[in-house]
Write a protein that binds this DNA or RNA. Structure first.
Lengths: 240, 240
DNA sequence: ACTGATATCTTTACGATGTAAAGATTATAA
DNA sequence: TTATAATCTTTACATCGTAAAGATATCAGT
């Protein structure tokens, strides 16, 4: 296992000015710059986001640190700062990407279903499926405390996926839902659909549904439980 | 035991001096031990948990660190280790306390309601109200990634609050729900109730319901939205 | 083409955190 | 009374986020 180079902890007393030269060993593992690794990366912004996604799905939210991402991308630990400002910046941009993927997955499910009620079920299943396929990303999007939802890219992406949800609920109710104002009934239908599927997903990712699945009939899968749940609440979205 | 070879860094043999200058480590709380602050605390275990709850509700999940809790309790930063092993230990014990408070709040609401359908609504409102009153605690219980759910105290407390939920759903369906096995319908009803109220709570605490509330009729409160939602799903828990 | 400005990336530094280990002090039991 | 265990403090260190200064490449204006 590659030893991660310990990161220099010099003592405070007045150090000799500059003259750094060679420094004896200087055996630091992390990316010694050579001629084939240019000083300027080219598109580090993009590379860092890709690296971050790899780290996230490999090591989870807890492993997603600025320094780990820099290591994964093969640059110095401070390089990300220049592109994202701080950790919140990087996480927010990555979450925005997640929301876009997420919104596309839901839209695709909606498009592939034939009838209106089927669209709702398909979207809900796509919602849960995305979270199961990208648990790290979903956790980042909905669990992380270090996101800046005011950031334009993130705000826009999450608003877009929310708009998709709103449209879906509107279709289920056979009515046009305005972007500006909602009736209490409409608001409740939207909140209900979102809460149900988001709550289910969070409980699932946290392993808390195991308690229920273990007591369910032999061989009941997550999908089966979700399907049964959606059937139970089938009438919930339809207009009275 | 003499202090022979106190630090044996097998990792980097070349580094000679190490220069220890006292470094004024952790002087943020210069708490000097005097005669009125005895070496042994008395019941530090309890005091640390109380301190932790204060820190949590004051500074949020991010501020809830081992060292912050030690500072709040007026002991050295390493004192908690002896009582809880590590951060996960402390957080898990605190979360267990939260689950007990939570379960009691729900039980009280259930008891104070007259009719069966009212009990369900009252419990759901108590659920959300607890989270609103103790957002830090709810976040710790359901959002923290550093809990050990296998810990007996936490496992027991969270199972107990889950059992309360199961009982409530059973009452709504006018049937006895076994601890051992559930029908698919029962499982779906439980998962549905929990998902709905948990999802609503998470979205609320994350500020994501604002988007909906802002578009709702003038003056729609969180409570009103929740009530409308519960009304919408009123038939969901009742047996077909 | 040259040159200064600017953007990009690296080094160095520092305070904060979790945790391990060893020392200090008090309680407890034999 | 004394040995042992329990409790708490000190010291040490790797890791993290972030700031600041240095190094290097790109670019605009002349």
């Amino acid at each position: 296992m590659a030893r991660l180079s310990k990161e220099n902890k010099a003592t405070r007393p007045t150090r000799a000015p500059t003259r750094r030269v060679a420094r004896a060993a200087d055996r630091s593992a992390p990316r010694r710059r050579t001629n084939d690794t240019p000083y300027h990366h080219g598109d580090l912004h993009e590379a860092l986001l890709k690296a971050a996604e790899r780290v996230l799905e490999r090591d989870g939210l807890a492993g997603l640190t600025l320094r780990a991402v820099a290591r994964e991308a093969g640059v110095s630990h401070a390089a990300p700062t220049h592109h994202f400002g701080d950790l919140t910046g990087l996480l927010s941009e990555l979450a925005a990407i997640g929301f876009r993927q997420f919104g596309q997955a839901m839209a695709a499910a909606d498009a592939s279903a034939a009838t209106t009620p089927e669209k709702g079920v398909a979207s809900a299943k796509a919602y849960v499926a995305y979270a199961q396929a990208h648990p790290g990303m979903y956790g980042l999007m909905f669990r992380s405390e270090r996101l800046d939802h005011e950031r334009p890219s993130l705000h826009e992406a999450s608003e877009a996926s929310f708009a998709g949800l709103t449209r879906g609920v509107g279709a289920s109710r056979h009515e046009q839902i305005s972007k500006e104002s909602l009736s209490l009934d409409q608001a409740a239908a939207i909140a209900s659909a979102w809460s149900l599927v988001h709550g289910f997903t969070m409980l699932l990712l946290d392993g808390r549904l195991k308690t229920i699945l273990d007591r369910s009939p032999e061989g009941t899968s997550v999908e089966a439980l979700l399907t049964a749940m959606l059937r139970l609440s089938a009438g919930r979205l339809a207009r009275p």
